[in-house]
Design a protein around this nucleic acid. Structure first.
Length: 271
DNA sequence: CCCAAGACCTGGCGGC
DNA sequence: TGCCGCCAGGTCTTGG
């Protein structure tokens, strides 16, 4: 479910419930996520006020005075706001009970997600330290992307999906941004001109920005913190549309595999 | 350093 | 209806 727009939508949805209140209970029903949830987290955060809810890439950061809880939603994770006491389902692995009577529930059928505790400077944590810039920040510009792409022989789609290059661009938005930029996803990153790289940076920004405005993309069951689905699905030009006509030239969209990820493109419009 | 592939999981779908 | 293989919004880890 989660690429950057969905994670940001989740952050905006849960932040008002978490900020200015304290954690009453931290209940783990299934600790086996990507890494086992450290049992010590309970004692670290129960009774502690939540200072801020921020995001770095696809990691949500729940900041406390004594450290930060990093939450990653993996492929199938979600966080929802509930009233305390709602009965948990099979994949509802963690509840963060709040003193204001609400409960933040972590659900993740595939358990590719993670919940990790970090002491003070969270930006130095192993999982965050080597991440690339935020795609909507000024640090992500054409100079940056162009310079890092030189000498790279792998496909540009894998390049922009690499979180060490730029964070937050997952399979949906990589496909969309490359279509919008008119670049063939299979093209070697190092063989894209400066001018076209400028265009790509702009397209990544536009696609992610628009998706955040629409509350993300709901493919299956993603809901924002307000309980509403994301409406960006209506705007997807290529993702999930293999065989259907290209919105620009009407020729059928083609599907290929790239690094084992489904890749949809128009071989006429993307070069 | 770069890149491809494997690993971690469950559920839903189409085909037989 | 049942079983089987394949696919799915991610990314860390390993090996060449």
């Amino acid at each position: 479910m989660p690429e950057l727009p969905e994670v940001e939508t989740t952050r905006r949805g849960i932040a008002p419930y978490l900020e200015k209140t304290s954690v009453a209970t931290f209940e783990v029903r299934q600790p086996r996520l990507r890494w086992p949830i450290d049992p010590a987290i309970k004692n670290r955060i129960e009774g502690q006020p939540v200072e801020q809810v921020t995001r770095r890439g696809k990691y949500l950061l729940l900041q406390f005075a004594n450290g930060t809880l990093l939450v990653h939603l993996g492929m199938s994770g979600s966080l929802r706001v509930l009233t305390s006491g709602t009965a948990p389902g099979k994949h509802d692995h963690v509840d963060i009970g709040l003193e204001n009577g609400h409960c933040i529930r972590y659900t993740d059928p595939r358990r590719f997600g993670a919940m990790v505790w970090s002491e003070h400077p969270v930006q130095d944590h192993k999982l965050l330290a080597s991440l690339g810039p935020e795609p909507l920040s000024e640090a992500f510009d054409d100079d940056y992307l162009f310079q890092h792409s030189r000498g790279r022989r792998g496909p540009v789609k894998s390049f922009i999906m690499d979180s060490h290059i730029v964070v937050g661009v997952g399979n949906i938005y990589a496909n969309e941004a490359l279509f919008k930029a008119g670049i063939d996803p299979r093209r070697a990153a190092g063989r894209i001109s400066r001018q076209r790289m400028t265009r790509l940076v702009q397209c990544i920004r536009e696609v992610l920005g628009a998706a955040i405005e629409q509350g993300g993309t709901t493919l299956k069951d993603f809901l924002g913190g307000d309980g509403k689905p994301g409406y960006f699905k209506q705007e997807l030009a290529v993702y999930g549309r293999a065989g259907m006509p290209c919105s620009r030239c009407q020729r059928p969209l083609k599907e290929v595999q790239l690094a084992k990820r489904s890749t949809v493109l128009c071989s006429h419009c993307q070069r």
